[in-house]
Design a protein around this nucleic acid. Structure first.
Length: 224
DNA sequence: GCATTAACAGCCG
DNA sequence: CGGCTGTTAATGC
């Protein structure tokens, strides 16, 4: 079972629960580690747990009929996902890949359903998260075909700093240019060029193995 | 033109 | 040292 401090650290939603709700959540969470590049699940898998990223970096993507892979969301430590699959008790509709060594927190379906039935705070969190994801997916539908590589990079980066999905995060993320390339669907070299462009515009600052956001609003809206 | 892979020197932790 | 960065060359759609 996860310690209270660890749960609070990796799950912003847990901080708003009542004491009994928090204890119920704590009892239902366990961990699992995935190696770099490993598949967490394929389309159609019945990964029945609600899932949080405790450490690492995960890509959620779909593959079109023509075989092209498109990123739906990048998720860093603190992200939680899979509620749609758990609530509807249906197979996953997307692929999940660990872009680096990743530790996932798995919440039993029964625990999730208990919180869903009993906790107002938990439901508030779910609504906010649904709302944010919907906005992201609408953005994909609107613009994905026309965006150049730099704009795709900008959007994928902005997701990782979404203040609703990651409340209280600072402006710096430890992430390599290769990982950003994997996330945004481009080679490391092109990710490198894109970062240089965005840095020149003052939207972010590139460090050695890290990125610091300077202007999240403009980064999220960047379209070339 | 814009992307990819391969290669490599240089830098950083 | 090992990993990451910045850059170039060769090549492909």
């Amino acid at each position: 079972m996860i310690t209270p401090d660890d749960l609070r650290a990796i799950a912003a939603w847990s901080r708003d629960l009542t004491q009994p709700e928090f204890e119920e959540a704590r009892r239902g969470v366990s961990f699992r580690i995935y190696g770099k590049g490993s598949n967490i699940c394929h389309v159609g898998d019945r990964l029945e747990s609600w899932t949080g990223v405790a450490e690492g970096l995960v890509k959620m993507s779909t593959t079109s009929k023509t075989g092209k892979s498109a990123t739906l969301a990048g998720m860093r430590a603190g992200a939680w996902f899979g509620e749609g699959t758990v609530i509807k008790a249906e197979p996953r509709r997307y692929e999940l890949v660990a872009l680096r060594e990743t530790r996932l927190a798995l919440m039993r379906r029964s625990t999730f359903m208990w919180l869903f039935e009993h906790s107002a705070a938990f439901n508030r969190f779910l609504v906010h998260q649904f709302n944010e994801r919907l906005a992201q997916f609408i953005a994909i539908a609107e613009t994905d075909r026309t965006l150049d590589s730099t704009a795709r990079l900008a959007r994928n980066l902005a997701w990782l700093f979404n203040p609703t999905l990651y409340p209280g995060q600072d402006r710096t993320l430890v992430v390599s240019q290769e990982e950003l390339g994997l996330l945004a669907g481009m080679s490391r070299q092109i990710a490198n060029q894109g970062l240089a462009k965005l840095e020149a515009l003052g939207l972010l600052e590139v460090g050695h193995g890290s990125v610091t956001i300077r202007d999240l609003e403009r980064l999220a809206r960047y379209e070339g």
